[in-house]
Amino acid sequence: MENLLEIDNLTFSRSGRIIYDDISLRIVKGKTTAIMGPSGIGKTTMLRLMGGQLKPDSGDIRFRGESIQSMKRNRLFTVRRQMSMLFQSGALFTDMTVFDNIAFPLREHTKLSESVIKTLVLLKLQAVGLRGAAQLMPAELSGGMARRAALARAIALDPELIMYDEPFAGQDPISMGVLVKLIKALNDALQLTSVVVTHDVTEVLTIADYIYILAEKKVIGSGTPEQIKQSDSPLVQQFLKGQADGPVPFHYPSDDIEHTFLGAK
């Protein structure tokens, strides 16, 4: 199996706080890899590191064996045409119609004629079921529709790697089902490599080929969905079952409560 993206011994810190400490990940070509973990551990940051928007303190991130953080800006921009990211908010351009949003990457990066672009855009919209909404403005779409439109834009240039940032967060069960189906279908039909960052356990277990669970700056568990379910790590089990307290503490790190309220001894 070929690795599309390899992360070795990654350490990253922001404003003095360590987010990742010596993490290694493999993203296998043609598969869906899920990165899970409690909120606030910087899962989005991981995607930004993969996309080269942030640079790690140490360690190496390689896309097809080429180190991303040592790329020149031009090279990075060329490489990025083969990746795309679905942002949590969709990040559609609010001053354009849905059609223009999806045509945007095509118009920026290709010299296709308007009629070809029109065909391509309508095909992509058809794939996400929004062909009828082509002339709407993003503000007129519901949250789930906006995310589907953003997905159509993300696949406009037929990328190799697509990164989903919390695709299921804040969706009603129907939109969630639609998105799960779409991600799966796209992966199978286009032979895409997908990275899904999420904390929605059940959805991920159905679509992921391989799962990494991050917590406390480390990878605490990894494997296929089956292996993960059978994991004997208490941390992993706490996460899968959604227990309030456990190895991932309920309390944000602080002084002993007695110490705070009763003063120093």
Binding site: T78, M85, A91, F104, P105, E108
Partner: peptide
């Protein structure tokens, strides 16, 4: 995230 998304679209 429109600016980030532009960057990711190269």
């Amino acid at each position: 995230e429109q600016l980030s998304s532009l960057e990711m679209m190269a």
